[in-house]
Amino acid sequence: MTRHWGKTSKRMMFTYFVLGGLIFLFSPPRLTGQLQLAYARLFSWPLSVGRQVTVASRTTEAGHLGDYPRSMDAHRQLQERLAALEAHHRKLQNHLANREAQLEQAQNRIDELARLRSIPEWDRMSFQQAGIISVSGQGQSELMIDRGQDDGLAVGQYVLGDLSMIGVVAAVAAQTARVKLISDPMSRVPVRVAELDARGVMEGRGAGTAVISQVPARRQARPGDRVYALNAPGFPGIPIVAAEVVDSQRDPDNPLLWRIQVRAVCDVANLTRVAVVISER
C-alpha cells in the first residue's frame, strides 16, 4: 500500500486531500451528519460507557477508595446527597415553571371561552426516552442519543431534559439521532418571556447561552425571568420552560426593543438521559 502511495507525489496527494476536505466542507449537513451518526452508532458502546464514567466522576470525589478518615467519608456522603438534592430541586423548579405556564394558559382559556378543558396538557404528549451517547460540537452544543427513526424520532422534534426543553432533533438515523441544543449557534427557537409576555426568537450563542433579539417589551426583563419555548411543528402546543434571563439591554439600533441574554435552565453536562416529544396522542 505504501509502495502504491509512494508513486503519487507528496504535492499531488496534498492537493487531493485538500480537495477532499473542501468537498466535505461544502457537502450538505445531511450527508456529513449521516457519517457522524454512523460513527456514533458503530461505537455507541465505548462512547456511552465513557460518558457514564465521566458523569459519575463529576458527581463523586476523585480518589475516595475507603482510605480516608471517617469524617472525610461523611463529608463525601453529604456532598453526594447535596448534589442529588440540588438536581432534584432543579428538576422540581422546572416542573413548577411548566405548571405555572400551563395554569396561566388554562386561566386565559377560562376567561376567553368560559369553559374549561380539564385534560392536563402533559398527558397529551408522547415521550421517547433516550440515552446520551456523547456530547459534541463547539461549546458542547450537540448531543448524540441512542434512539432514532425506528423509535419514531424525526427531525424537528423537541427534546426535554430535567423537564425543560433543551434542544431539537437535527438529524436521525435508524437507531441514533443528533440533537442540536438551544445554545447551538445554528439553533433558532420561538420563545416567550413569561414575565414580559413578549415573544421573540432565541438564537444560540454556545456554552449554554443564547440571545433573544428585538423583543418588544415595555419594561426590562429581570435576571431569573423564565423563557418558554413556543409551538413548533409537531409540538403539542403548550409552553415548556427552556431558559432563564441573565441580562437585558436596549437594542442599539432600535431603543424601543430589547436584547435579552439567557441561559439554559438544564445543565446538559450532567444529563445521562433525555426525552423526545414524539407527537400528540
Binding site: 505504501t2 466535505f24 456529513t32 451528519g33 457522524q36 460513527y39 460540537g137 450537540e142 438529524a171 442540536k180
Partner: peptide, 29 residues
C-alpha cells in the same frame, strides 16, 4: 507522504468525533 495522509486522516477523525456546527471539513483542512 505519510505525514500528509496522517494529518488529513486525523483532521477527519477530529471532525467526525466532535463536529463543528453540524458539518465536517474545517479541521480536515
Amino acid at each position: 507522504t505519510d505525514a500528509v495522509i496522517a494529518s488529513f486522516v486525523l483532521g477527519f477523525a477530529a471532525d467526525l468525533a466532535s463536529p463543528t456546527a453540524g458539518f465536517m471539513g474545517p479541521r480536515i483542512i
